[in-house]
Design a protein around this nucleic acid. Structure first.
Length: 508
RNA sequence: GCCCCUGUCGUCUAGCUCGGUCUAGGACAUCGCCCUUUCAAGGCGGCAACACGGGUUCAAAUCCCGUCGGGGGCGCCA
């Protein structure tokens, strides 16, 4: 059996979309599982839209996702070049071959003529296919017109009738009526190859055995098969993947939210989580487990089990998977991944000392179990870096509105404001004292204490929170963490100020 | 308009290839309970689907036909 060779062939016309990323991923999974070769080919023949920087971006995004290729524009290989723009001579050569054998012909129709023809056909309720007007031009005449410098495209002669059929690895037997397909353009009048022609030449010359691509190519396949036929080549096997849709069941696009791979990395989705999620869009492993590594996915993946119907991209499930993957990382690794998000938010220094890392690990360990994307981290950590009684939320305010609970908060601040560093032991001591002095316990004790220390009504358990604050307060940070003592002093001032206002009101 | 693909809980899917084992399984979301000084997380449990209509058959999510819905294509874009 020949070695499996698959390819991913994107156009560098923008940031890579998760739908395309999934196509790349399925190819990669199949290649790795079959001990095959994964080829990256850049289809940059659309000069208007293709840009070199997009190719770089594309490569970076694919690598970020965890894909690698054995052959490609950046790594070379025996079947190159891997950029279509560098293969123009090859396309021209096979074009001449088809022309000389009478299987292709020059077409002099202008884009305007063609558009008019199309509109007329549509209006008359006919299939808007090319009429074949130039097909019967005498070969010598066409040749001399071209020699004279007239612009012409090269078209394939599609057989008059009959059907063309092929077996799709995912969809089974498919067939198409040839009378419905117009003569496709092989080489455009600007000398660049058209998609349906270039893929065939490249896939064959690159010895591709399996073409795994999006469903939107199903009806292109008969045209490509015709090119294989004309050239006398054996076509590869085809597998057409269903599309990825947005929540409203239309093709996933920007208005559905994040769609490009780099947007997901920016919001703090782990590459292994996106990878896992993408693999699950249209496929499920035989056993029930869902949180899987790349290696496990390679083992379990089965191209024949891929779904034929379109799948809706579910951000919630992706976030859940992200949390699961994050949890599986070691504490040090979690800190390492979280770091850029916190540094960029101005919460951590560019240069981290071991003490910073040690603190970050504890912080990340305490806060990330409820975080589903790393970009949420700066907001979640605001409770450490920020302490502003004047900006309390309603719930916290209502806690302090109660006289007894306000008394608890006040007493707590009074006791803590002179303690240089609040250790867990001292915290329990203070809590016990207040309990004794005020008879407050349970919620009535801890709610006000929490508000006193955080100016919020909810958050991390205080036993975990306090050591993080005290350790953070000792560190040199771009944005200092106020210590418990500082918090207590500030809250005390705030409470007393409020008291005064209330008294004024009462007496006035 | 024509051609092609497709249709199981709100979502991703298992099951359909070899009809009975399906009172249709799992996961996300949702709801409830537990845990708990709060919010989450976590644990436990609940709600929830074979698009519709005809066949075939003792028996259909599974086979056949039709309808409807969704998507894609019909480019000198890829």
């Amino acid at each position: 059996m020949n070695q499996v060779r698959v390819r991913f062939a994107p156009s560098p016309t923008g940031y890579i979309h998760v739908g395309n990323a999934r196509t790349a991923l399925f190819n990669w999974l199949f290649a790795r599982q079959q001990d095959g070769v994964f080829v990256l080919r850049v289809e940059d023949t659309d000069v208007e839209r293709s840009r070199a920087e997009y190719e770089e971006r594309l490569i970076a995004d694919l690598r970020w996702l965890g894909l690698d290729w054995d052959e490609g524009p950046d790594v070379g290989g025996a079947y190159g070049p891997y950029r279509q723009s560098e293969r123009l001579a090859i396309y021209a050569e096979y074009g001449q071959n088809l022309l000389s054998r009478g299987l292709a012909y020059y077409c002099f129709c202008s884009p305007e003529d063609l558009e008019k023809e199309r509109q007329e056909a549509l209006a008359a309720g006919r299939s808007p296919r090319y009429s074949g007007r130039c097909r019967h031009l005498a070969a010598e005449e066409a040749r001399s017109r071209v020699a004279a410098g007239e612009k012409a495209a090269l078209r394939l002669k599609v057989p008059e009738g009959g059907i063309i059929a092929y077996h799709d690895l995912i969809r089974g037997d498919l067939s198409f009526d040839l009378s419905l397909v117009g003569d496709p353009v092989l080489i455009r009048s600007n000398g660049l190859p058209a998609y349906n022609y270039a893929v065939v030449i490249d896939d064959h010359l690159m010895a591709i055995t399996h073409v795994i691509r999006g469903e939107d190519h199903i009806s292109n396949t008969p045209r490509q098969l015709l090119v294989y036929q004309a050239l006398g080549w054996e076509p590869p096997q085809f597998a057409h993947l269903a599309m990825v849709m947005g929540q409203d069941n239309t093709r996933l696009s920007k208005r559905h939210g994040a769609t490009s791979v780099d947007q997901f990395s920016q919001m703090g989705i782990l590459p292994e989580a996106l990878f896992n999620y993408l693999a699950f869009l249209g496929w499920a492993p035989p056993e029930g487990r869902e949180v899987l590594t790349r290696e496990e996915l390679i083992k379990l993946f089965d191209l024949r089990k891929v779904s034929r119907s379109a799948a809706i991209f579910d951000y919630e499930k992706l976030f859940w998977l992200n949390r699961q993957h994050f949890r599986q990382l070691s504490i040090a690794e979690r800190a390492r991944r979280a770091f850029p998000f916190l540094k960029d938010a101005g919460l951590l220094p560019e240069v981290m000392t071991p003490a910073h890392w040690s603190w970050l690990e504890k912080v990340v360990d305490s806060f990330t179990e409820t975080v589903d994307r790393l970009s949420e981290l700066p907001d979640r950590l605001a409770i450490l870096f920020e302490f502003s009684p004047e900006r309390m939320d309603e719930e916290a305010k209502s806690i302090l509105a109660d006289k007894a609970r306000r008394q608890v908060a006040w007493l707590f601040c009074l006791k803590v404001k002179d303690i240089p560093e609040l250790s867990p032991a001292e915290f329990s001591r203070v809590a016990a004292e207040i309990k004794k002095e005020t008879a407050a316990k349970g919620k009535n004790l801890y709610h006000p204490v929490r508000v006193a220390l955080t100016a919020r009504a909810s958050g991390l358990e205080l036993d975990r929170f306090i050591p993080l604050v005290e350790e953070g307060a000792r560190l040199s940070l771009p944005r200092p963490v106020p210590s418990c003592r500082q918090r207590a002093a500030k809250m005390l001032a705030f409470l007393e100020e409020g008291q005064k206002i209330n008294q004024d009101k009462g007496s006035g």
